[in-house]
Design a protein around this nucleic acid. Sequence first.
RNA 1: CGGGGUUUGGCGCAGUUGGUAGCGCGCGCGCUUUGGGAGCGUGAGGUCAUCAGUUCGAGUCUGAUAACCCCGACCA
Length: 413
Amino acid sequence: MKLSQTFAKTTKTAPGDEVSESAKLLIRGGYIYKEMAGVYDYLPLGMRTLDNIMQVIREEMNALGGQEVRMTALQPRDAWEKSGRWDDKVLDVWFKTKLNAGGELGFATTHEEAFTRMLKSYISSYKDLPLYVYQFQTKFRNELRAKSGIMRTREFMMKDLYSFSRTKEEHDAFYEKVAASYTKIFNRLGIGTDTFRTFASGGSFSKFSDEYQTLCEVGEDIIYLDREKNIAVNEEVYTDEILNELGLDKSKLEQHKAAEVGNIFTLGYKYSEPLELEYTDEDGKRQKVFMGSYGIGPSRVMGVIAEKLSDEKGLVWPEEIAPYKYYVVAIGDKAMEIAEDLHNKAPEQIIFDDRANARNGEKFADADLLGIPYRIVISDKTLAEDKVEIKKRTETETKLLPLTEFIAKLGQK
RNA sequence: CGGGGUUUGGCGCAGUUGGUAGCGCGCGCGCUUUGGGAGCGUGAGGUCAUCAGUUCGAGUCUGAUAACCCCGACCA
């Protein structure tokens, strides 16, 4: 990408109505644009970053045997009537509207009903199970109060995986596989060391659900963390009785603010029963499908990463999710030509800061603000010995790298 | 949804006792600069959130509405 050609320019000042560091930096860097409270556009850099986060998650979901689909955001009323969740008293975050042709519909806040009903057409035998289906989809929640930039919004991206198992035992085994998968995902996303599996309140079929909570000052949850055992407890189930049950020693727990970046949930028959999702077992008997749901909010995760990993100079993206890997600044005429060639070789890896009217100081400042993992400076000075400068965003030291070595790196992941 | 606050050029802000709007950044043009957000000159850009009042006259006073922010509540 050439910086001279992107419409999303960086700014020195952040809008006055944003409080969280992540939102300020993402807006200053031209990653996102605010439409209204809790509703943000993803601009070219923001979209690439979000896509990269989603791709990491996608790879791990596929590794679990997940089949990716895309359900609709518009949801008909009837399936939700069956589960009892159409009523605003039950689920108060609905955005609902009327069809001109008659009837009511809602904008999906979640998709248990939709998946359950859709799969009723495809699941009939025990041979069809277990089944794991997931999607990335925009969710809508009519929150009374949006907060913290893209961390709590009314429209956001969600990965939701649903498992359909024959028995609770089969479900439990998969549930643990997802837990391991989530740990791997948050490691890959660069927030693994501060993200903890956290006991939270369950539903009608299990005492607990598991949340993945990332330590974060602007998070909305309070968790109690046992660092030795590497598990935490959400404030909502923080009672002596439950601590006993989990074998946790109250004196060893640290209290932290945290942001929920994922959750896994045993649903049991909660939806398969009212929506009649059944299969025929080996003995020819009808059985209900045992379900689970597993969410990660990629857009919130992006906010959490921005919040946690950024420094006073700007964003800091882990390599795997950065929108581009290299930020190239050229100083001198010959250097400009070489930078142009390099960019043409690897336009998907390089941001070439080719702005004619920007000074070098501004380019360095933007390289930092945008959080690109490596800054490459090509100057006539270093070209005299066929070298370029390379500096990691997370380090202060600049190293010299032979130009041929840098070219060899391009194209590698 | 309760309490509190804010709203003035693209962004950040100032605007006194009511007298017809200004600064910085950014943007255009010119010259000089050029390894950490340049300097000088010059220019463009505003129904002061909206509506209704008070007044000879409203960015400023009054009322209503809206949007946004914070605290709380909420968060299948």
